[in-house]
Design a binder for these strands. Structure first.
Lengths: 107, 107
DNA sequence: GACATCAATAGCCATTCGGTTATATGAATT
DNA sequence: AATTCATATAACCGAATGGCTATTGATGTC
């Protein structure tokens, strides 16, 4: 389930977490040990990051036997994308207003 | 000048900072005291946040007499937007590969 | 020139964060 | 059943974060 915009932003603030998410996007689902092997940090640290990513909906884990496969959920990036759109939208509105003003000053 | 992707992500991780940036996007340039009046935190705290936002290129300040006007620079959101595009791009590629695989399995 | 106002900086504090090692839990392997 | 492997959790630690008050520096205003 998708979580709050705030949690998504917080999750992606850490470069290690972004790197893990990137890898899952690029290479598809991976086990914790596979992720750990490329992460230069300990397995518990990876598990912690995955927990946070999961909490913000960016990642989902499914248990297969004794290993858990984590996959990225790009749909969880929507709040972020919408926020960016909103911000640039505000800017465009201001630009339109400025255009209107200039038009009004013209006559 | 636009800064690293990392700094943009870090800057936007804090909700107070996002709120300030949002306000500057929505209402245009504002002085530090005006921002402080609506922020529920002290003026030094606001200044600190503005410094960080400035460091990541999200905001620019221009001195006018004894007050400084800060304005949002939405162009600085580009790294974030590009990153999101990249991530969803990876996902699409995987989807394409899956389609190819299914096609190959078909014959 | 004295005084008020605006913003930035310094110094301090509590909390959060990202990492570690040690341990627990649970599934495969022997 | 004993052991090994995969992951999660607990407990801890140092560094970074976000807030505060007090102060400084600089610009208007009287």
């Amino acid at each position: 389930m998708s979580q709050s915009r705030n949690e998504v932003f917080r999750s992606l603030a850490d470069p290690t977490r972004r790197a893990i998410f990137e890898r899952l996007c690029r290479d598809g689902a991976q086990s914790v040990s596979t992720i750990t092997a490329q992460a230069a940090i300990s397995q518990p640290a990876v598990s912690k990051h995955l927990r946070i990513l999961k909490g913000s909906g960016l990642v989902q884990g499914t248990i297969h036997g004794r290993e858990t496969l984590y996959r990225a959920d790009v749909a969880a990036l929507a709040p972020l994308q919408n926020w960016v759109r909103e911000m640039t939208g505000f800017w465009d509105e201001k630009f339109d207003k400025l255009e209107d003003l200039l038009k009004r000053m013209d006559r």
